[in-house]
Amino acid sequence: MNTNLHFDCLSGISGDMTLGALIDLGVDPDLIRTGLASLNVAELKLHVDDVKKCGFRATYIRVEHPEQKAHRHLHHIEAMIEAADAISEGAKTLARRIFQCIGEAEAKVHGCSLQKVHFHEVGAVDSIADIVGTSIAIDALGIDSVTSSAIPTGTGSITIDHGRVAVPAPATAEILTGVPLAYCEIESELTTPTGAAIIKTLASSFGPPPPMTPHRVGYGAGTRDLPGQANVLRVTLGERHDAAADPGKVESDRVTLLETNIDDATAEQLADVSQRLLTAGALDVWQTPCVMKKGRLASVLSVLCGGSKAAIMQNILFQHTSTIGIRRQILDRTKLSRRAVEVETAHGPAKGKVVTLPDGTERFSLEDDEAKRLATASGKSTSLIQNEAVENWNRQQKS
């Protein structure tokens, strides 16, 4: 059975909402309290209460502690986590990954090294408790995968230690690069840096819930009341049924497709921009012949890339083609799990890849550049080289 945890972030996500939802799901709050106590933060108390948001019950988390003004560095927080003897190694590892995610975003936003990043709001005791508490809860649930809806950030502006900033805050915006965002007009900070880092670290994909049988549902409450909707985070724990439930066989992710019609470029120019796009990190680039509205022959230039690369690809298209408009789509993609291998051949070692099919069997193929290299060196055809490499790999698996 593959146990999946799905986050419904209609009203955004924060650290306290996440911890509240996981406790509401059934995680023992005393397990969280014991782990947090081992952080050796004086007089830290975790309060768990039932509240109502727009008429719906949810669990509200409040961390009580003496006021502290200290700005912590990443190594201070990691030392606190490492010294906590009542927290499992799995929970410690997850907490460090979440703080690493925040630290890398803060370093980029402030233009400094990771070692010199000051954790302001996120370095406060309540945020540390939210992240560590969430890590303890996730580890206790023993889940196999995490999925999430798209993330709304809210609009407007907020005041942080560095002054007035637009929503999402700079660190939140940086953390959420590559994560699908949901449209939302609510003037409030719906997603905090802590919440963004938690969901980016945990979730393997974003979109509707995967095919699954729900077993338990939990609700975590935010502090504010929102107009027209309950300020709650819902988490659903259940058994996942789709092929992607086995991460060793079929995987899923989300990619961006950019397309533009070009009717005034030579074949050489299209080849040049295609190579530039691939060099810059495009997953794939292709051309499709088409006829435009005035009967002119043209090509549809298509670029597939990760969400974080979309702006780079767009700039290349605008700079190196005559296009004045680019279409964009966000696509869910299913792909076979793959790994790089090296196979021995009669002409020396060669690089290839192995993919795992849904039934668990494996398939090898030689990289095209390697086939061309060995064909040139041996005087044989690339197809013959490919066949020899496949036979050698199959033979090596049986030996």
Rank of each mutant, 00 (worst) to 15 (best):
P193R: 03
V291Q: 13
V125I: 15
L94H: 06
G154Q: 12
T177E: 14
L270A: 03
P349S: 10
G281Q: 02
K351P: 04
H241S: 11
V291G: 03
L283I: 09
R296Q: 09
V27H: 05
T147A: 00
R216S: 14
H65C: 09
T3G: 01
D16Q: 10
S308N: 01
G360C: 11
G15I: 10
S38M: 07
M292Q: 08
A197E: 03
I158A: 07
P227F: 06
K372T: 05
M80N: 00
N261Q: 15
I316A: 02
S378P: 12
P193T: 04
L36W: 13
A173N: 07
L25H: 11
L366R: 01
A107W: 03
D49A: 08
A371I: 07
S337Y: 12
S88H: 11
S149I: 12
D130M: 07
S204E: 10
E82V: 04
D28V: 05
L44A: 10
K335V: 10
T172P: 01
V390I: 15
G20K: 05
K293H: 07
L331M: 14
D30Q: 12
Q329K: 09
N231E: 13
V285A: 09
G295M: 11
G222H: 09
D242I: 00
V109P: 04
A350L: 03
T194N: 01
A371E: 07
D225P: 04
S148V: 03
H65M: 02
V132Y: 00
V51P: 03
T279H: 14
E78F: 10
T356E: 07
D28G: 06
V343I: 12
L277G: 12
T279E: 14
I158S: 08
L357S: 02
E268M: 06
G156K: 10
I385Y: 08
L25K: 11
D16P: 10
K353V: 02
G238M: 02
E82Y: 03
A203K: 09
T321G: 12
A371L: 05
A58S: 00
D359N: 15
V165D: 00
I158Y: 09
P210S: 14
S274G: 15
E259Q: 12
V354H: 11
K52I: 02
E362L: 03
A169W: 00
L46C: 15
V273L: 04
S148M: 04
T256K: 02
A346T: 10
D368L: 06
H162C: 01
T260N: 11
L226N: 14
A346P: 07
G238V: 02
L141I: 04
G218C: 14
V117R: 03
L270P: 01
I81D: 04
P227S: 11
G20S: 04
H47P: 06
K45C: 08
L237G: 13
I186Y: 03
R327Q: 14
V132C: 02
V27A: 07
K293A: 10
D368G: 01
R333A: 09
E82A: 13
I87T: 13
T177I: 08
A166R: 11
N2K: 06
V179P: 01
N2S: 08
N315E: 07
A37Q: 15
V41Q: 12
T356I: 14
P66L: 00
K92A: 15
A298S: 14
G55Y: 04
